[in-house]
Amino acid sequence: MTKTQRLLELVQLLRCHRYPVTAQTLAEQLSISVRTVYRDIISLQQQGVDIEGSAGLGYLLKSDGHLPPLMFSRHELDALMLGLNWVSRHTDPELKSAANHALAKIQAVIPQHLSLAIDHQSLLIASRGEVVFETHLPAIRQAIHQRNKVSLQYKDLKDASSQRVIWPVVIGYFDRVRLLCGWCELRQDFRNFRVDRIEQIEISHEVYPGTRHQLLKRWKEYQQLRYPESG
């Protein structure tokens, strides 16, 4: 492995960690010495890569926007294509269009031999029957991103209708059902709503308190309380 390849691999490893990672861990993953990791970190910092940390505490990549995009391996490309194909087959036209644009960007930066792998894929997505695209999904996604409250006229599985105001936080994509998860003001708790059973929806200009990340954290904690790990 050349030094250039090693530096790119080091940047990629740092990209995969959201929290500081020690030089010892990086050295083991790259099969190099800890001293070489220290030298490579300094070299990257001198080239302008924003790496924070120090020996003994660990290192965290803050920004590498000035670097050219790394090439994808064949396995990475397979994973990306499988995900993009799933989005194209199982989501609404807005996300399908986004997946097509993402694919075009990928094809623009990869070498020709990998581009041929995109044109002749061996990993395919299978669907069970026709997939129904709910028209409410683009508005719901926008509400999630902008922290807007959402008013719903909802009919449950017993065909009982109710009016709800929720703080949307997650959309769950299953094979044939989409679930909107959020904080329900009526129940004062997190609730799930099948998108295909939403009769009417209105996106409010009012935002819920706190940040989306705080609400998402609360939802994840709620899920763990409902579904404790067995052990």
Score class of each variant (00 low, 15 high):
Thr2Trp: 09
Lys3Cys: 01
Gln5Arg: 14
Gln12Leu: 11
Cys16Glu: 11
Gln24Met: 11
Thr25Val: 14
Thr25Met: 10
Leu26Ala: 04
Leu26Val: 08
Leu26Tyr: 06
Glu28Ser: 14
Ser33Gly: 08
Thr36Phe: 01
Asp40Lys: 03
Ile42Lys: 13
Ser43Lys: 04
Val49Met: 08
Glu52Cys: 07
Ser54Pro: 00
Gly56Pro: 07
Leu57Cys: 06
Leu60Val: 08
Gly65Tyr: 09
Leu67Pro: 02
Leu77Cys: 06
Leu77Arg: 03
Met81Ile: 07
Leu82Gln: 03
Ser88Leu: 09
Arg89Asp: 05
Asn100Tyr: 03
Lys105Ile: 05
Ile106Gln: 12
Ala108Tyr: 06
Val109Phe: 14
His113Lys: 13
Asp119Met: 12
Ser127Val: 04
Glu130Ala: 05
Val131Glu: 00
Val132Asp: 00
Glu134Val: 00
His136Phe: 13
Ile140His: 01
Ala143Arg: 07
Leu152Phe: 08
Gln153Asn: 09
Tyr154Gly: 02
Lys155Tyr: 02
Asp156Ser: 07
Leu157His: 10
Leu157Glu: 06
Leu157Tyr: 10
Ala160Pro: 00
Gln163Leu: 11
Gln163Ile: 12
Arg164His: 14
Ile166Asn: 08
Pro168Tyr: 05
Pro168Gly: 02
Arg176Leu: 11
Arg176Met: 04
Val177Thr: 13
Cys181Trp: 07
Leu186Ile: 10
Leu186Asp: 07
Arg187Phe: 02
Gln188Phe: 01
Arg191Gln: 13
Asn192Gln: 11
Asn192Pro: 00
Asp196Gly: 01
Arg197Cys: 02
Ser204Ile: 01
His205Ala: 14
Val207Lys: 15
Tyr208Asn: 12
Pro209Ala: 15
Gly210His: 09
Thr211Pro: 06
Thr211His: 12
Thr211Ile: 09
Leu216Met: 09
Arg226Tyr: 01
Ser230Met: 14
